[in-house]
Write a protein that binds this DNA or RNA. Structure first.
Lengths: 201, 201, 201, 201
DNA sequence: AAATAATCGAGACGGTACGTCTGGTCTTACC
DNA sequence: GGTAAGACCAGACGTACCGTCTCGATTATTT
């Protein structure tokens, strides 16, 4: 077993975790207080009692900092219940997710998606750090349904997930109508019915 | 007793349409060339050969200007075909819309939605000027299907529209997968099947 | 039947002088309230209820307007007394002038001289409208002294005037010491003694 | 007990003397080329290759900058010759000063005095930085004359200085007549004669 | 212990763009 | 045909942040 080639203990003064945490905390406070648009590096540095250099040393951009700040405190993945019926589990999770998005989390997610639009690196951070694990959980729920013979086995799971959650995000971002339970149920019903194993007439 | 409702004779030099058009054209050029993030009031003023004051006099913010610039030249509503089958009409329009969004229009729409997140005024402008007319066209297509006996008559049309187009916008904004025809067809099939009048067994 | 030409009322232009006076009054108010530095054409126009054009039609610059505004209300020439002794007359007038300059007039004159520095036209206006008549009065007082045999007859009167009043303006503008009577008397004494007809020993 | 008076260790990046000098040089060039009225912070920044912030960080106003620029390059105090005769020394220095004022320096000094009128801080700067040392030199010359028994010992030196130099500044600022040698000599003669120790008849 | 190395805070630096203010010019409609 | 209103281009204002760059001070590892 080759002991890792990369064992080189770093020289010099080690990174200060105290500073790191102060920065993320300050960033979060600014994000919640004033929104992403008013989060500035200088503001974070001042509030955290930290030099600007320290921020630039560790984060490539305002967006990257905001994203990490958010991920550092984002709500845990909304879990999928595991009853006898995968369809019900999914519909129930969607309702819970929508409830979370009606609060502060929704604002935060909206801003994260918004700030992703102009910067591919931020988009990747958001996808990897936030969206991907949540999509993986959904994928597992769907696979469970497939395994139970509830859903067809030839599904494009990503497409199904997008069909289920796309409307929710659409309303979150455009804001023309609320993500109420009736809406989510109707979306879930339409999509899940469409992927259900057909009863033979 | 004069009953004139509109008595407001504007005083002073009237607004210059020439300047207005030069500003919107310059804004569009910058939007397409460098994106919303690089659109600055100073840049627009310089390119349009216009004083900054003239821009600030008529547009309250960078976002409002960008939005109006977008709306002033955006492709006309992607029309719905009108064949015998409303379902086919809708699915066909979705494919066309997605094609448009794979080009420059998609980038601009993404950025407009993003900049809507921090500014309620922009959001309203975008909804009224861009989204609402397109949703109304979709609503008409759905009503046609209802009238033809193709779709159920108890539908929440807005919810149906969100279910159809939400996934498309979701992929547009998150970018984790392309809006290809197969995906859109599967979404359309699931949703439209769900609202179809049930055949009596 | 329109009688084109001449109604009994001759083509009224009732405004002109009214506007002119309103402008000068507004300019004076601004000058006294905020000083020359804060006098702007726009401010004057707004306060006078007048279009900017009307100001630009009659005055070539901010300074010219200010100058005329000041001249329109400036205190009358401080008269020279006419006693038996021209020296005493002059010294007395200097004391009176200094007293006037210790009040608002002094501030106004200071600012007029200041605004003359960058604009030859303003300087000319100030000289012709303010300074020249006052110097002429001083010249007459000196000539009276010459005629009476009190002063020498080969004098360069302008140089004498500058020697008399220069120190007063110097203190007015630099402000390092007050123009008190003792100072003025000592200046007057030195200069007037110097130009007095010498007693033959 | 440590008696160190100066314990303030400056933190952060130290001020750049290079920038400071570039700014003063650029300001001087603009002052001489276009005059104080055309000296703008933006112009200085551009010419010096410096950010505007750097100027605003160290100078509170356009006038303060101009003043320091002037002081940084103004000829050293026009020295007083030191011959046997203090009267001659003073008259000679006045001629030299007037010669300097007939050139570019005169224009700048005029403008500085003008801009002092609306800003007490500028006035103070001009007095402390420019005028006071020159007056002190004159005071020393006069004291020399007193010590030599040439002038009376009960003089108000400030008043004498104002009497000597006031006319010169008066002509400089009003511009109605040149500061030629004959004029200065006559002023000097009158004033210095007046303060001379009287010969006993 | 001393030297080396990377960190930290502070804050100045050259810049870009902001949104405002004023200058001086130019249209309009009204009187 | 002069006037008020007010839009127009131009450009400087003073401010906010950007991202980079010294500094002196601190905290580790390596010699």
């Amino acid at each position: 077993m080759s002991s890792t080639a990369q064992d080189s203990t770093p020289r010099g003064r080690p990174r200060s975790d105290e500073a790191r945490e102060a920065i993320l905390m300050a960033a979060n406070e600014l994000l919640e207080g004033a929104g992403f648009g008013r989060l500035t590096i200088e503001g974070v540095a001042a509030r955290a009692g930290v030099g600007k250099t320290t921020i630039y040393r560790w984060w490539p951009s305002r967006g990257a900092l905001a994203m990490e700040a958010l991920l550092s405190k984002v709500a845990p993945v909304i879990a999928f219940p595991q009853t006898d019926c995968a369809s019900d589990d999914i519909a129930a999770q969607m309702r819970r997710l929508a409830r979370a998005y009606r609060g502060k989390t929704g604002t935060v997610v909206r801003e994260m998606i918004a700030s992703s639009q102009g910067d591919a690196a931020i988009r990747q951070l958001f996808f990897d750090g936030y969206l991907a694990p949540r999509r993986e959980a959904a994928r597992r729920a769907l696979r469970r349904g497939v395994a139970r013979g509830e859903f067809r086995s030839d599904l494009d799971l990503d497409a199904v997930i997008d069909a289920l959650y796309g409307p929710l995000f659409y309303r979150l971002l455009l804001g023309h109508a609320p993500n109420d339970d009736a809406f989510l149920d109707s979306v879930a019903a339409a999509v899940l019915t469409g992927i259900r194993v057909q009863r033979i007439g």
